[in-house]
């Protein structure tokens, strides 16, 4: 179970405070996998980061009694100078301390699943994008969590790897819950029963993904319309001709000011 209460998150840009979300509250019961849907910049990833404990809200709290994963699919959390093997060992040590057998088990799993051959022992910073996403995904799947936060995972990898990912995700679904973000909307359908639409800092809950996707598309279109109509009404945006004429005007003004100053100095 995850319970989010009165979550507020904002950031300051150019001295102005922008709210990602304000007083957000919702509850996810055990046994429910939820798809989080929203346009770009709606705050989906921020919400996942806060639930995952990597980011902090301005106010409000996240209550849970379950083991929550880090956002799967985010390519952070790796020391570039160390190899994938050493990075895996590091993460395993966080969870298992000095239990050598368990650590070795995790390393073997990641090596096997990522399947990047000799590169497993090369520094992480030299990896290609595909290799990185293979290792990060494999590492996330090596540990058993009650709730997985999944952020855009199926974007990378060749099709064999993608099949492998889908398979293991389905297997994980039997024992744990998901909170998923994905722009490939139809891939969410087999994994999640519920859907939350995050729009303008508010959450709309749906029990049916199909309906949610329909609503989401409608919202996206209407948002876009609003944006474009705002653009048209924007007084700053003038036609070329008027810009030209206003520049001319400014030039004239400067000339006037200049001549004023000259006059003053002459006096």
């Amino acid at each position: 179970m995850i319970e989010v209460k009165n979550l507020t998150k904002s950031y300051i840009h150019n001295g102005k405070r922008n709210y990602v979300f304000k007083d957000l509250s919702f509850k996810i019961n055990t046994g429910e996998s939820v798809a989080l849907i929203g346009g770009n910049g709606a705050g989906k990833s921020t919400l996942l980061r806060i639930i995952g404990g990597m980011d902090f809200p301005d106010s409000g709290k996240v209550y849970t009694d379950k083991k929550i994963s880090w956002p799967v699919g985010l390519k952070g959390g790796f020391q570039g100078s160390l190899s994938a093997r050493e990075n895996t060992k590091f993460v395993s040590m966080i969870f298992h301390g000095n239990e050598k057998e368990k650590i070795q088990e995790k390393i073997n799993f990641v090596e096997d699943f990522a399947d990047i051959g000799k590169y497993f022992d090369k520094p992480f910073k030299n990896y290609s994008d595909g290799m990185r996403s293979r290792v990060t995904f494999a590492l996330s799947m090596a540990f058993d969590f009650d709730i997985y936060l999944i952020d855009e995972v199926s974007a990378a990898g060749d099709f064999i790897f993608r099949e492998k990912c889908a398979k293991i995700l389905k297997k994980k679904l039997t024992s744990s819950d998901f909170l998923m973000v994905n722009h490939n909307l139809w891939s969410l359908k087999p994994l999640c029963q519920k859907a939350f639409i995050l729009n303008k800092g508010k959450i709309i809950e749906f029990d049916n993904i199909q309906e949610a996707i329909k609503e989401h598309k409608k919202l996206l279109r209407s948002n876009k319309k609003n944006q474009s109509s705002r653009k048209q009404n924007n007084p700053n945006k003038k036609s070329r001709r008027s810009i030209y004429s206003s520049k001319k005007l400014e030039l004239n003004k400067n000339q006037i000011q200049l001549s004023d100053r000259i006059k003053r100095e002459i006096k």
């Binding site: 020391q79 100078s81 160390l82 050493e86 060992k89 590091f90 993460v91 040590m93 966080i94 969870f95 298992h96 301390g97 000095n98 520094p123």
Partner: peptide, 19 residues
């Protein structure tokens, strides 16, 4: 915390040695 610190010590030594 002990586990985390020991993992970080491992990382620290590995990074140093790799340099």
């Amino acid at each position: 915390q002990k586990n985390v610190v020991s993992a970080l010590v491992y990382r620290e030594l590995k990074t140093r040695i790799s340099l």
